[in-house]
Amino acid sequence: MAMQAHEIESLIKDALPDAQVTIDDLAGDGDHYAARVVSASFKGRSRVQQHQMIYDALRGRMGDSLHALALQTSAPDD
């Protein structure tokens, strides 16, 4: 199982419409990505909570069809 970068981006944007999402394919195998996500909805939330918001947006794929997603999250002008 694997995912395409655009799938990850659209799932994140479905959940966080204002998000700016940058995705890097780390291994070309559809399983290892890095993502940088900037969204106002992260404001006031801990890093763990911010990453959990992304995992929720991916609706269970994290750790399943997606093995690795190195995450960097922040609110605008953080």
Partner: peptide, 20 residues
């Protein structure tokens, strides 16, 4: 409520996974 391993706990509190 964290979908991956590894997970770090300090003094009973979840701190994060590899990235954090």
């Amino acid at each position: 409520n964290w979908p991956t391993i590894p997970q770090l706990y300090v003094c009973g509190e979840f701190v994060g996974g590899a990235d954090i």
